[in-house]
Design a protein around this nucleic acid. Structure first.
Lengths: 330, 330
DNA sequence: AATTAAAATGTAATTGATTACATTTTTAAG
DNA sequence: CTTAAAAATGTAATCAATTACATTTTAATT
């Protein structure tokens, strides 16, 4: 593999000139530039990025910490990250943590060893105990009370909107299947749900809260439990679409008609939401935009370029499909 | 940030000894090791991986070229890659190509600039025109006639098995919705399908082949077309689950009962396959194993460690669910 | 105690690009 | 044609680790 020295020898110029031809061509005369470029072509020279990164102390690489890459919502966020990273000439290192804090901190430490310039965290957890000054952006599930910039949804408002809608359809006995309780998303959505009930003067029933873990199976089992109550809910709001799809399956297994016997709503609007039967009422989140906004923000943090907005909120949309309908009970 | 020199000064030993304490501790006396480790702790020294990579000419990073990270099958494969990479101390750079050859080759060239040590390609395309000697492994959708090691399914056998099964259910008029025609997977599955028909002495009807692109929508539109024939198929075999789910939706829209009026089968066994209505008959592929086998293989190629098996075939399984059933026509 | 082998440690070169600073060349102005 | 300023180019240090090779120390054997 040819080095910058080989090129400089062939071109008859110094290595500095070759380097400049590549990085700041306007500092090099047109004539020299031509000669150097010819030499680069001749030697098939490709700058050694490892050497460059070493010298410049930048890796042009960022790490994405994601609880599970196979989650369809996260994979869309990552697609957004990746696309923006490409346009900014950053490479994306995948850090699938599977919720393991050890793995998370291993990946996070890549920044300390200059393997990466920054971190995008998709989980509501700070990978650094003591607030370090590592460039980091928190997306989707964001922690409260840290100084990380966040890109998030107004989850309380979204949950309120969904609950309001269900109430508007005549539902009073509305259950909710939550995500894991330690996540900010869960807490916010839960408080939005409660708020909506309160505004409608519906008494909040603690039995109507069922804790899930974002999986199909937890959606199923929660639904099984809920529907065994003497007064089962007439609507179930799930904090993601997978649980809602699980809930639909369980409801059908129990011989219930959707939405006639029970309305079921999700959250995320993953691509399958449109294709399940009945199609799922849900909250649409701009997954790719989350990713691309997070990447742009991280870029600004890393390069101290432009204003850093502490908390960015993206828009959601209530998507009404056929898994929900008017309360036909009472 | 402390360097190895700071540590050596504090410990009162040479940098070589510090380096050895970290990389080959058995070459260092217990006494010295203790002193050095204390100094490392004291200085909070973290080896500069950039410098190490530069010196050793290895990045301990591999690139995954994937047509679309948001595809649920691919994201599982990547999860497998990532997990094995972690255990082998490799980092995974994400190369979402969106089918763009330009992007693909940009990523592939990261190996030439020593940003990565090898490549895992999930698409049936060689990112290097002239067979270079870059470490690369081809997974899932593998090209014929190159010297890349492959990890693949016997796609022809799998399609044959599915078709055999449909035939065993009394179906004779079996349509197939393919993936993009330039992919090896499509070609192999198509030939398996034809073979099965031939073995059963069923005349192959070219109209029963409909080209899709692995998307829900193409599954829908192909189904719409197929079902307009005077003698519409009694079974549709889709080359992935998304298209099958699209086909199910379309069939329902047309008022058809599944599987009574039409049997629909998919391929991949993505997690949603179990949760659609009716649950999807499909071929299960070991997605994570694809990933982990590919990573192990790439490791061996990079480190010239152990035998390189040219083509590795993983097992598939026919999963019979309720989207297919006996032919109730004729 | 002398000799030898083995183990431990140290010295200094090396990796390939970048860049501060020095030097040369070109351009413009008088 | 000078001269000064600006532009272009060159020289050589630098980044932080690894490691070949040299040297010193320790252990083992006689």
């Amino acid at each position: 593999m040819a080095t910058i020295r080989d090129v400089s020898k062939i071109a008859g110029v110094s290595v500095a000139t070759v380097s400049r031809t590549l990085s700041k061509p306007d500092k090099v005369s047109a004539k020299t530039r031509k000669i150097v470029n010819a030499a680069i072509l001749e030697t098939n020279y490709k700058p050694d990025i490892l050497a460059r990164n070493f010298r410049t102390r930048k890796s042009s690489t960022i790490v994405v910490l994601v609880p599970d890459i196979a989650n369809p919502f996260f994979s869309r966020v990552i697609r957004g990250i990746e696309q923006t990273a490409q346009s900014l000439d950053y490479a994306v290192l995948l850090g699938d943590t599977q919720g393991d804090r050890g793995r998370e901190s291993t990946y996070a430490n890549m920044v300390n060893t200059s393997q990466a310039d920054g971190i995008i965290q998709l989980d509501s957890h700070n990978p650094f105990e003591n607030n370090s000054n590592v460039p980091i952006v928190n997306v989707c599930d964001c922690i409260r009370g840290t100084d990380m910039p966040t890109i998030e949804l107004d989850n309380a408002a979204a949950a309120r909107k969904m609950t309001d809608y269900l109430i508007s359809q005549g539902h009073k006995n509305i259950a909710i299947i939550t995500g894991t309780l330690d996540s900010t998303i869960t807490q916010d959505r839960l408080s939005g749900y409660k708020e909506a009930l309160k505004n409608a003067s519906i008494k909040f029933n603690p039995n109507n809260i069922n804790v899930g873990d974002y999986s199909f199976l937890s959606g199923m089992s929660a639904t099984r439990m809920l529907m065994k109550y003497q007064a089962p809910p007439t609507a179930i709001f799930c904090m993601n679409d997978e649980m809602a799809i699980g809930a639909i399956k369980q409801a059908k297994l129990m011989g219930l008609k959707i939405p006639d016997d029970i309305s079921i709503a999700g959250f995320d609007n993953i691509s399958f939401a449109e294709y399940c039967d009945p199609p799922l009422t849900t909250i649409s989140q701009p997954a790719e935009e989350f990713g691309s906004k997070a990447m742009s923000m991280l870029y600004r943090v890393i390069n101290q370029d432009g204003a850093i907005k502490k908390n960015t909120f993206l828009d959601f949309e209530l998507i009404i499909r056929n898994s929900t309908g008017r309360n036909s009970h009472d």
